[in-house]
Design a protein around this nucleic acid. Structure first.
Length: 439
RNA sequence: GUGGCUGUAGCUCAAUGGUAGAGCACUUGACUGUGGAUCAAGUGGUUGCGGGUUCGAGCCCCGUCAGUCACCCCA
């Protein structure tokens, strides 16, 4: 035998115990429902991808966070997937026969070797929905409409989806005359506008070696991020890529309006950047204003990504929900409906003594056949212990079949919360329980 | 990846360098066909791990692991 080792999980990863799983399943279920309502269908892919599939897609910084995995005798270089988007492009490249536009959703764990923090883990779930094969801004509008629908379905009130366009950001860089190799620093600085303010952004740009005249030009463009689009149109009139981006957002806005998306739930914001390298068009990100925990969703259009597989690139757009953060926020705001109990079990069928085990087994399975979630006590250590077990697990009802009840073909149904008990005929316990569960 | 803070019973936390404690939880009993309330008793710790200083370390020093916060980045 090897020496005893401490039970623990890898850094930044965690177990999710049953009570918490019920909350997760609720959140995932609600998201999935809305995905399907918008015509998306499920997809599953391996947690491991060939390393070459992932490399060169996310940018240099992000790629350092990719986990490598390899079997001792394996001949393939493998990596744990970093997101669900690149695997999607791989799937679309592999199966050209998929009907376009291809709309899929995928809810699955991804891995990033970041330094763990609250709401940030090394293994976490993403809920992605993407549309492949449509250049139309209607595809982007559908995504944003769905993002808002999902968050409202989960009960969020005060949130806003920020929308921008990479083409506008590219245009700003061109307009200000920032050299291409400094653009990354430029955009990262712009992204911090809300966090560190205009002066902070100036300082950040200076530190990123953006020439002072360029800083001045950029700052006039992003001074009022949410309302600046009219001014942008005037100032960027000679920058074709920027005008293209503005035109796209105008179209997107019209579609969102037609979809009836509440104005309070989205805004156009030139200071939105987003990290991933592959975005090419509209980008979106949702933040909840209270409490502040960063973004809950993020996405955008990435029309060139698939081209990296040597195929003709199909235009793609989509979004990702950060379910870990959504759950953290929902915890903090106590947003779960009362219908999510602490247990899925609806009744504990107790076992009175050895002679009555058979009666309890029969009743438990009779309840299960009637569609009721019934747990069965596994030993006869005494009713007290069994009721204590039921209470500890928050099981709402207990069924007691003692000698007296059984002789009369009856059973005692006890409500653990109220302590009320009723006698029920044994062939009617399912009906009685259903009535009580509804009450 | 950089810097700060933290790590003591299942949980929340105490303990001027001098024999590790409380509340809650748990077990048992008062209550032999019934959980929660009250009362009583009891179990529970190589103080995250490994070194060092010291007559003596939970406390001081170094390392390491984990959590957390701010950066970097990001869901």
């Amino acid at each position: 035998m090897s020496p005893k080792i401490q039970p623990r999980v890898p850094r930044g990863m965690r177990d999710i115990l049953p009570q918490r799983m019920l909350q997760r399943q609720y959140v995932i279920g609600e998201i999935e429902k809305i995905f399907q309502r918008f015509g998306f269908e499920p997809l599953q892919t391996p947690v491991l991808e060939l390393r070459e599939t992932l490399m060169g897609k996310y940018g240099e910084e992000a790629e350092k966070l990719i986990y490598d995995a390899r079997h001792r005798e394996g001949k393939e270089d493998l990596s744990l997937r970093y997101d669900l988007t690149v695997p999607l492009t791989r799937v679309v490249a592999m199966y050209p026969e998929l009907v376009k536009p291809f709309k899929r959703y995928q809810i699955a764990p991804v891995w990033r070797a970041e330094r763990p923090q609250k709401g940030r883990y090394r293994e976490f779930y993403q809920c992605d929905a993407d549309i492949v094969g449509s250049k139309s801004m209607l595809a982007d509008a559908e995504i944003v409409t769905m993002v808002v629908a999902v968050l409202r379905q989960l009960g969020f009130q005060s949130f806003v989806t920020k929308i921008n366009n990479r083409k506008i950001l590219t245009g700003i860089g061109q307009y200000a005359g920032v050299p291409a190799e400094r653009r990354g620093g430029l955009y990262r600085a712009i992204d911090k506008l809300e966090k560190i303010g205009a002066e902070g952004v100036r300082a950040e740009m200076a530190q990123n070696q953006i020439p002072t005249p360029a800083i001045d030009k950029v700052m006039t463009l992003i001074a009022r991020p949410a309302n600046a689009f009219g001014e942008l149109r005037e100032l960027l009139g000679d920058v074709p890529i920027a005008m293209e981006g503005l035109e796209e957002l105008k179209q997107l806005a019209a579609y969102l309006d037609d979809a009836g998306v509440p104005r309070a739930n989205y805004t156009f914001d030139v200071s939105l950047v987003r990290g991933l390298a592959y975005y090419t068009g509209p980008i979106y990100e949702t933040i909840v204003t209270e409490p502040k925990i960063g973004s809950l969703t993020g996405g955008g259009r990435y029309d060139e990504l698939m081209g990296l597989f040597g195929n003709q690139a199909l235009p793609m757009t989509g979004t990702s929900f950060g379910i870990e953060r959504i759950i953290d926020v929902m915890d903090e705001l106590a947003m779960y409906p009362a219908s999510i109990g602490k247990s899925v079990t609806q009744v504990l069928v107790t076992v009175f003594n050895r002679d009555l085990i058979g009666a309890s087994i029969r009743l438990a399975n009779q309840l299960r056949a009637a569609g009721i979630n019934a747990d069965l006590a596994l030993d006869t250590e005494g009713l007290g212990k069994q009721l204590k077990y039921a209470a500890a697990k928050s099981i709402p009802f207990a069924l007691i079949i003692g000698p007296d009840e059984n002789a009369a073909q009856q059973a005692t149904l006890r409500n653990l919360a109220s302590g009320e008990q009723v006698q029920v005929a044994q062939d009617q316990v399912a009906d009685a329980l259903e009535r009580n569960l509804r009450a």
